[in-house]
């Protein structure tokens, strides 16, 4: 039991947070609980503190509208949290789509897909292009462009307010990630993930690699959904500073050699370079 906890502690915690957040939203709609109302686009905590999706608010700005004070304050709080503390943790600790893509990835690993399937190459920068495009289209058409097509909002909104054909969006992502492109949605396309990668670039919480302990087993790179951020594995003791790291902690769990751990960002460069 202890071993399972050690191997999956962050995974378990992440699933608990993700499910708890969605449960509170659903409870607000079904039973009128006032703990967390709304959905991930905009919500109210204990009927007072507003929280808003800063990317959605930016799209509304691009569409030519000035949002009300609550959305503005809400977006500010969320931005500040991820900018200073959370990094891109939204993607792995909050977003419900993460459970879908993680499942696809899990089946991929267990089925040994990588050894058999046709390989596509796709840039991980598509998300930044998609983000730029979303602002342009919002501006031209006068409505938040990603919010109309976003499978992420379709999922969390669907869970709270009724899914409709939203399951088709979830299935699309699942099949895409499973058979077309590894980490296709979260790691390549999703502009919301791109947005949080930029926002969380300089956050406090970071994974740190301790090179002398590393035995080059590469288990971390196997589980990492953004493996480009682990370029230093076995090469150099560095903290994983790229904004694309979702702080999911999978690499920390799978490492048997204590070569990866969560830590706080070092602001002062060490003297070792000299």
């Amino acid at each position: 039991m202890n071993k399972i906890w050690k191997k999956y502690r962050f995974l378990i915690l992440r699933r608990l947070t993700q499910i708890a957040i969605m449960f509170l939203y659903i409870a607000a709609n079904v039973w009128g609980w006032k703990i967390l109302e709304g959905n991930l686009s905009s919500s109210k905590v204990v009927d007072t503190i507003p929280l808003s999706d800063p990317y959605a608010v930016l799209q509304i700005f691009a569409a030519g509208s000035i949002v009300g004070a609550n959305a503005l304050i809400g977006a500010f709080i969320v931005t500040l949290f991820y900018m200073l503390i959370g990094g891109r943790a939204f993607c792995s600790w909050v977003c419900p789509v993460n459970m879908v893509t993680d499942l696809a990835n899990f089946i991929r690993r267990k089925g040994g897909f990588d050894k058999v399937e046709k390989k596509w190459w796709a840039s991980r920068n598509i998300r930044y292009w998609a983000m730029g495009l979303s602002f342009i289209i919002s501006f031209l058409l006068g409505t938040a462009a990603f919010e109309i097509v976003s499978p992420v909002s379709m999922t969390h909104r669907g869970l709270v307010f009724g899914m409709g054909f939203g399951w088709a969006a979830i299935l699309t992502i699942f099949l895409f990630d499973l058979f077309v492109l590894k980490n296709g949605w979260c790691g390549h396309i999703c502009p919301l993930g791109g947005f949080y990668s930029l926002v969380g670039r300089f956050s406090l919480f970071r994974v740190k690699h301790n090179q002398p302990n590393c035995t080059l087993c590469m288990k971390c790179k196997e589980v990492c959904p953004e493996k480009e951020v682990l370029f230093m594995i076995g090469k150099k003791s560095l903290s994983v500073n790229m904004g694309e790291c979702t702080l999911c902690g999978r690499c920390v769990e799978v490492c048997d050699d204590d070569a990866l751990n969560f830590s706080i960002r070092e602001f002062v460069k060490k003297e070792r370079k000299k």
Binding site: S52, E147, G158
Partner: peptide
């Protein structure tokens, strides 16, 4: 252009009149 699709109005409605488009 302004609606952020959060559904807070839907939850506030005591008669379940309002719905969010699925």
């Amino acid at each position: 252009s302004l609606c952020i699709k959060c559904g807070l109005c839907v939850e506030a409605c005591p008669y379940d009149t309002l719905m969010l488009a699925k």
